[in-house]
Write a protein that binds this DNA or RNA. Structure first.
Length: 715
DNA sequence: ATAGGGTTAG
């Protein structure tokens, strides 16, 4: 069979296209020199070369026209190639046009158009074309199935995928490793590990892709042990892991925060000479960051000269998740200054960092940045912004973001419900929940957690209890957090016995969060015996958590049991634990200023203390009588700080008063829970200085105004 | 011409 040929003379007589970056003469010269037969080359190789150099749709249209000029429009080889290049240039509609006008499409043409849709993730079209192909009685081959299976997996089209599996079987392709890996990938995406395993063990020749698929399949399902034992099996086989396989295993280690195993894999990476592979760098950076090894992560990050967005994201989220909010935000601005385009994930992590910082100015800046970027429409970005505004003290601005979010999913609704709850607006939370149901969005487990917490924060005991009971109507099984939420709801309201009985009827073993909620309720209501019981459980379950010891100590102190206080102190010393020092942060002109108890480090210290004296005087005039606990004498200095409330909050208020114009809202963030005395004092202060004071404590928000607090003294 | 991985909200 002889291919149609095009003489070079005729080629040169084509009208040459005046296009930039497209040197026809050079193309011909290259063709010419690579041929032994001067003058004549096959049309196939000529157009292949031409198409490989095409960079614009205009080139393709011209080539398409030329095919007609030379009667080559029905040359399957060339048109297939044309469809390929057209798809590569994202001109999928034009590719489809080329396909449709071709007479008698055969398997090559079908594969080309299916590939085109597949590579641009237009999966419903992949399935549509595959169905049409079968209706046309064209037999799919080993090149068709991988695309079709990818589409089925991405669409989670389980039934269709099973049918495709059957067709693969009928075509006798059970030995084709590409097709079988496609099936493996399909079952992994559909969370069907049983079938994935059957395919994997049925494979005669497993390649590195098969191994990677089965490992990441287990990891995605949370079956980390199986994933890692698969990796061991792989090491025992004759298939050598490549970069992608190593990245998958590293991810499994980072997800379970297995730092030591991860380190071993790091040395394997070095041994195999992959340490400078960018993708492995990212995986390693992420591993160290997730395991809290921020310094190690940063040094890996710094060694990368040309990092892409994902590397920056890994580092920013690593900082943000480990409480290094400032470093995270510094990286974010550095990234922008280096003209690396942030994406939705970058915003997410940076918004998380802003939320931790608690600075409303910073939050507004992030919001503005998003508004001016193309990322505003992203639901995940909106959710992150809502949570950020909520944690920076502004439910109103959070609501603005919420209102302008189109296509609200359950996570956005839940974030907003949670926001209302955090600020003590339980009724608004419940109303929003009803709106959400009216909008046809189904609540999930986190939604109910948000509702129970919201009710708990403002004493809506029966409402909260009803939400807990109604979970089963939605087919949602409560987990530890829900049980802890209910214990908090009941206990905080003073129903300690009901809370205890509730714990006793739990179908699962109560965990740290449940006992912690009970102990904290016991502290509020000074129930020593039950509190000691809860503390004992906590010391067994979680012996190194400072918070539990402090709670018990405070419980003893509130009941004036100084022996108990001393006992806890000794216990803590024996475990080498120290109390967290209290501090308060206030934002003035976008700058955060932290104060500790008795802090005199600020340059304006004299003025601050003068204002503080004035505040104390006015407080006494307003009838502020510190709780009698304040007169405690049996406590050492440190215990007094905690019991009396550390005065950092009042220092921050004093600084705020002298640094802002009258009427400005003061926004304060503290690391510990609000104490009784400070809460009372701040209420009074808000009245006589005529300011709104917003305080974020370790647990929730308080809005002080006109002598009252939004929490209704219930926290 | 076809398959696997890395960042990810409440």
């Amino acid at each position: 069979m002889s291919f149609p040929t095009v003489s070079l003379q005729r080629v040169f007589s084509f009208p040459l296209l005046p296009l930039k970056n497209f040197n026809w003469h050079l193309t011909f010269a290259r063709l010419f020199s690579s041929r032994s037969h001067y003058g004549r080359i096959s049309a196939e190789s000529f157009y292949t070369s031409l198409l490989e150099k095409s960079t614009h749709i205009i080139h393709l249209r011209q080539i398409h026209c030329q095919l007609y000029t030379h009667g080559l429009q029905n040359n399957g080889f060339i048109v297939t190639k044309l469809i390929h290049v057209t798809s590569n240039l994202k001109e999928i509609h034009y590719a489809r046009h080329l396909f449709e006008e071709f007479p008698d499409q055969y398997v090559f043409l079908w594969n080309a158009i299916i590939r085109g849709y597949s590579m641009h993730n237009i999966f419903d079209k992949v399935v549509e074309m595959y169905s049409r192909m079968r209706q046309a009685f064209v037999s799919p081959d080993t090149f068709t199935f991988p695309h079709v299976l990818k589409a089925c997996g991405s669409l989670l089209a389980k039934r269709y995928g099973r049918a495709v599996h059957a067709q693969i079987f009928r075509h006798g392709l059970e030995e084709a490793v590409f097709v079988q890996n496609g099936l493996l990938s399909f079952y992994v995406k559909c969370d069907d590990n049983n079938h994935a395993r059957i395919i994997f063990y049925g494979l005669k020749n497993r390649d590195v892709v098969s191994w990677t698929l089965i490992i990441s399949g287990y990891a995605q399902n949370g079956q980390y042990m199986e994933a890692l034992s698969m990796f061991r099996d792989m090491r025992g086989s004759d298939v050598k892991p490549d970069c992608i396989a190593l990245v998958s295993v590293l991810k499994a280690y980072s997800d379970v925060e297995e730092l030591n195993q991860g380190r071993c894999l790091h040395s394997l990476v070095i041994k195999m000479g992959h340490e400078f592979e960018p993708d492995l760098r990212i995986a390693l950076t992420s591993l160290y960051a997730k395991c809290g090894q921020v310094t190690a992560a940063k040094s890996l990050f710094d060694q990368m000269k040309f990092g892409d967005v994902i590397l920056w994201n890994a580092m920013i989220s690593g900082f943000a998740k480990n409480g290094h909010a400032n470093e995270a935000l510094e990286l974010f601005t550095e990234m922008i200054s280096k003209s690396i385009q942030p994406d939705a994930v970058t915003i997410q992590s940076s918004a998380l960092a802003s939320a931790q910082l608690g600075s409303l100015d910073q939050a507004r800046w992030m919001d503005n940045y998003v508004k001016n970027s193309k990322l505003g429409g992203d639901v995940i970005v909106s959710t992150a912004l809502i949570d950020m505004y909520v944690k920076c003290g502004s439910v109103e601005l959070a609501r603005d973001v919420f209102n302008r979010t189109v296509d609200k999913d359950v996570v956005v609704w839940t974030a907003m419900i949670m926001g209302y709850g955090l600020h003590g607006w339980g009724r608004e939370a419940i109303n929003l929940f009803n709106e959400m149901k009216d909008a046809g969005v189904h609540p999930n487990d986190v939604t109910f957690l948000a509702l129970i917490t919201a009710c708990s924060h403002c004493g809506l005991v029966e409402e909260g209890w009803e939400f807990f009971i109604s979970m089963k109507d939605y087919g949602i099984k409560p987990c530890q957090k829900h049980y802890a939420g209910v214990v908090d709801l009941l206990g905080r309201a003073g129903y300690l016995e009901r809370a205890y009985n509730f714990i006793m009827t739990m179908p699962v073993e109560p965990g740290v969060s449940v006992w912690g909620a009970l102990l904290s309720a016991c502290k509020i209501h000074r129930s020593v015996t039950l509190g000691e019981y809860a503390a004992e459980k906590l010391f067994n379950l979680d012996p190194l958590n400072t918070g539990h010891y402090v709670l018990l100590s405070n419980l003893y102190a509130s009941a004036r049991m100084w022996g108990g206080v001393a006992k806890v102190r000794v216990l803590m010393k024996s475990k080498g634990l120290n109390k967290d020092l209290g501090y308060s942060v206030i934002e003035i002109d976008g700058k955060l200023q932290a104060f500790r108890i008795g802090d005199k480090s600020h340059p304006r210290s004299d003025a601050i203390y003068k204002k503080l004296e004035w505040l104390e005087m006015r407080l006494l005039e307003s009838g502020f009588a510190p709780d009698t606990e304040s007169a405690l004498h049996d406590l050492d200095k440190e215990d007094k700080e905690v019991t009396l409330c550390n005065h950092s909050e009042r220092l921050a208020i004093a600084y705020g008063l002298i640094s802002t114009s009258p009427g400005t809202t003061l926004r304060i963030i503290k690391n510990l829970r609000a104490c009784v005395n400070c809460h009372l004092a701040t209420k009074l202060i808000s009245k006589f200085v005529n300011r709104e004071i917003v305080v974020r404590d370790a647990n929730r928000f308080h809005h002080f105004k006109d002598g009252t607090c939004s929490c209704g003294d219930y926290w």
